[in-house]
């Protein structure tokens, strides 16, 4: 090595951000700022102070909420169970549909002429809110939980297909090649090489969407698509905040119960933890539901 090529630690240049990089950062933050300013007045953000100045009204409202009225608890529990049942079927059907749609919208599995239209269809499923779908299905199949189940199914299919496909696109391709090398068919490559890799994520996404569907199913009743939403809507519109509080409390407890259920199931299936806690909790849930059904 000659003297000319000898470098000391002092000679080392620390890489610095280029002008181009700085410009891009400024553009990104600038765009974000412009968006906030642009939407400030249309979103009524200039009236934000009223949230605090109207504290007296809010306190009155909260007072009513602090004394929940469980006079019609049987009806509330029955409708809450109906919401959960809608979420169960909505989630089940959307998982069934989400798997093929998810695989067909994965760029590493399907050709672009299939991926593009399937993704746009899923965009449409996702872009329209469950309430809007519920209105459409109420018109098609009439009032009742079926319209709610269909609304949940369509919207959740769009969401799950996107999440499923993103998981598939992030897989390690080497195990798939390992399966291919055994002489497996294309379908076998997916079943044996892809699905085992994405299954934990798919289960996690499905459980999350089930929790979301329990929440969503509680408001679909507002448009007549079954569940507890209709009672909640009527209570709030009639300024019967005490009954509204009772319904919200029931919703809160139900959502929490299923949140714990999902969390325990996730630990067993994904983290490989002991099944005892999950089994005990499942037993408690089953007893609770059976008990409610007997009482009702």
């Amino acid at each position: 090595m000659t003297d000319a090529t000898v470098r000391t630690l002092d000679d080392i240049e620390v890489p610095r951000r280029t002008t181009k990089e700085k410009g891009f950062d400024a553009l990104l933050w600038g765009t974000f700022l412009v968006l906030l300013v642009w939407s400030f007045v249309p979103a009524d953000m200039h009236r934000f102070g009223e949230v605090f100045s109207g504290g007296g009204n809010m306190a009155l409202l909260l007072e009513d909420f602090l004394t929940p009225n469980f006079r019609y608890w049987r009806s509330y529990l029955e409708l809450m169970l109906e919401s959960v049942q809608m979420a169960v079927w909505g989630s089940f059907l959307s998982i069934l549909l989400g798997i093929p749609f998810g695989l067909l919208s994965s760029t590493n599995l399907a050709p672009s002429w299939i991926v593009f239209p399937v993704r746009r269809l899923m965009d449409a499923f996702r872009a329209i809110n469950e309430l809007v779908f519920a209105l459409i299905f109420v018109a098609a199949v009439g009032l009742g939980p079926l319209a709610g189940v269909m609304a949940l199914t369509i919207h959740t299919t769009g969401t799950l297909a996107k999440l499923f496909s993103e998981a598939v696109e992030a897989i390690d391709p080497r195990p798939v090649e390992g399966i291919r090398a055994t002489g497996a068919s294309r379908l076998q490559e997916v079943v044996y090489g892809v699905i085992p890799q994405v299954l934990p994520l798919w289960i996690s996404f499905s459980l999350y969407r089930f929790e979301s569907n329990v929440r969503s199913a509680t408001v679909l009743g507002i448009v007549g698509a079954g569940g507890i939403g209709m009672s909640l809507s009527e209570a709030l519109r009639g300024f019967d905040y005490a009954s509204g509080a009772a319904i919200l409390l029931i919703i809160l407890i139900t959502v929490s119960l299923f949140d714990i259920f999902s969390s325990l199931l996730r630990k067993v299936v994904i983290d490989g933890e002991e099944q005892s806690s999950f089994v005990a909790y499942l037993g408690f849930l089953v007893l609770l539901i059976v008990g409610i059904e007997i009482i009702l």
């Binding site: 080497r174 195990p175 390992g178 055994t182 044996y192 085992p196």
Partner: peptide, 13 residues
């Protein structure tokens, strides 16, 4: 044919 890949290519989990 039996293939043993450099990275083993087993299906994890």
């Amino acid at each position: 044919i039996g293939l043993v890949s450099q990275k083993h290519n087993l299906v994890p989990r």
